Amino acid sequence: MSPEYVVDGKFSVKSDVFSFGVLLLEIVSGKKNRTFQHPDHHHNLVGHAWLLWREGRARELADNFYELSLIEFEVLKCIHIGLLCVQKLPEDRPTMASVVVMLSNEGVTLPQPKEPGFFTERSCTATDASTSEERCLTHNVVTITVLEAR
């Protein structure tokens, strides 16, 4: 979900762009944003992609499968576009029409992305007993009530 929807309940076409950016990063990396874990930090996949981008190591985000089937330029372009889509402020994000143009044309100059929304480390307090590593987990609890007539 886009930051403006989570914080203010405002939904717009730029919220869809944010979601598309997350999806694009998930496809390139082969990992889910929600369950992503890294041993060096507690950022989600979007935050991890941003850290790698700033350090000039964005290629490390790509799933190993892509090494065999895609050229590095295309992978980096998808990461770049994904980061443009997940920028914190809606007005900084491109429109979906612009995203389509960026994805389909090689000659398009892409602007530098700004910090993504939700670029904060998660606080982890739960410890997995089997691995003794910190993990951020949520537990879904469901209660079912069955109504019976007397």
Rank of each mutant, 00 (worst) to 15 (best):
L84E: 07
L23H: 07
V13S: 01
R59L: 14
G30D: 15
E91I: 09
Q37L: 10
D92P: 02
G82I: 09
D63Y: 06
N105G: 11
V28N: 04
E106P: 07
V101K: 13
K114M: 08
F36N: 08
V75G: 00
A126N: 09
C124W: 12
P113Y: 11
V46N: 02
E148P: 04
F65D: 12
T109K: 14
I81L: 01
N44W: 01
L45N: 07
R122P: 13
V142G: 04
A97V: 09
M96Y: 06
F73V: 13
I144L: 06
P94S: 11
I27S: 02
S12T: 00
D8T: 02
K77V: 06
R54L: 15
A49E: 01
G21W: 04
F119R: 04
R57M: 15
A62W: 09
K32R: 08
V100K: 10
C78D: 15
K114T: 06
N140A: 09
L24Q: 00
V28Y: 10
D128N: 07
S130A: 11
Y5F: 08
T35S: 10
R150F: 02
G107T: 08
V17Q: 02
S98G: 05
Y66L: 09
A58M: 10
H38G: 05
T95E: 05
G21A: 02
D40L: 06
S19A: 07
R57P: 13
E67A: 01
C136W: 03
S98K: 06
K14G: 00
L110E: 02
F65L: 12
E121Q: 11
E55P: 00
W53E: 01
Q37R: 00
I27C: 05
F20D: 00
V46F: 01
N105T: 09
D16R: 08
P116K: 12
A126K: 08
C124N: 14
M102P: 15
T145Y: 01
D40V: 06
M96S: 15
V99A: 12
V146Q: 10
A97T: 12
R135V: 12
G82H: 08
L76V: 08
P111W: 01
L51V: 05
M96G: 15
P113S: 13
Y5D: 05
I27A: 01
L51P: 02
I81W: 04
E115L: 13
L70D: 02
V6N: 00
V7L: 11
G117P: 03
T95P: 03
T35I: 12
I71A: 13
I27N: 01
A62L: 02
S15Q: 03
L103V: 11
F73H: 12
R135D: 11
